[in-house]
Design a protein around this nucleic acid. Structure first.
Lengths: 111, 111
DNA sequence: TATATGTGCAACCAGGAGGTTGCATAATGG
DNA sequence: CCATTATGCAACCTCCTGGTTGCACATATA
C-alpha cells in the first residue's frame, strides 16, 4: 500500500542512518558483510582505532540492529544482522517514490 | 562491474548517511521530496526547532549533496537534489551483494 | 600453574553537533 | 518612505560522540 512517511517513521529510521554515518562503523559493516563473522581482536587489527573504540562502535551498530554478537570461548564474535540494511534501503526507496509522485503531479498540472 | 567497496568509497559514503542520520534533517528531506521546493520560513513552520537551526541543517544537507538552494526575491528556496538518494541506496545494495556473495561462498564450501 | 590472549568496565578528555538569542540587512507592499 | 517579512551572520552554550588509557577478569595454552 506504500503508506506516507509519517513523523514516527522518520524518528525510527534516523538512528539507522546515524549508525551508518561514521566511517569506522560503515567500514565494520562492509568488513563483516564481505568477510563474515569476526572477533573484536580480528576487527581491530585492520581498524585505525583502538580495540575499545571498535567495541563501542559495535555496540552502536547493535543498538541500531545492524549486527549481533555472541561469545565463543574467550572471544566475542560479531556478525551482520541480515535484512536490516534492506530496511534502510526500503526507506530511501520510499522517499524516492514520493519524489517521483510529486514530479508527476507537477507534470500533470503543467500539461 | 560492481567493484569491491574500497576504504575510499567508505569515506565517501559515510557523510551521506551521517547527513540523513538526524531526525530533523531526515524530516526535511522527506518534506522536500513530497511537497516540493520550499522556503526556509515555510520549512520552519512545521519543524520543531528555530529557523536558524533549520538553516544549519539545510546547509549540512547541501554539503552532502542532498539538497540545493537558490534565491527568489527575498526568500531562499530549497529543493531536493535528484539522484543523490539513489547513490546511498546503491551503496547499501553493494554491501548486501557482498553479503549474499559471502553466503553463497559459504554454502559452496559446506555442500 | 604460569603465561599469553581476548574482553569488559570505568574514568577521563577534546571537539564538534545541535540548539539558542540578538542584531544587521535585503526585499516587498501599502 | 515606513513597516513587515525573510534571511544571514555571529556569539554563545550544553551535551554527546569518538577517542584514549589503565586495570581487572576470564579463557587458552605450554
Amino acid at each position: 500500500m506504500n503508506r506516507p512517511l509519517t513523523a514516527a517513521k522518520v524518528r525510527d529510521a534516523a538512528p539507522l542512518f546515524a549508525a551508518l554515518g561514521d566511517p569506522t562503523r560503515l567500514g565494520l559493516v562492509v568488513r563483516l558483510s564481505s568477510s563474515g563473522p569476526r572477533s573484536i581482536a580480528r576487527l581491530s587489527e585492520t581498524a585505525q582505532v583502538s580495540r575499545q573504540a571498535v567495541t563501542k562502535h559495535l555496540q552502536v551498530l547493535e543498538d541500531a540492529g545492524l549486527v549481533r554478537g555472541f561469545r565463543r570461548g574467550r572471544q566475542h564474535i560479531w556478525e551482520i544482522e541480515p535484512g536490516r540494511l534492506g530496511v534502510a534501503r526500503d526507506y530511501l526507496q520510499r522517499i524516492d517514490a514520493q519524489w517521483d509522485a510529486a514530479l508527476s503531479r507537477l507534470k500533470t498540472i503543467v500539461e
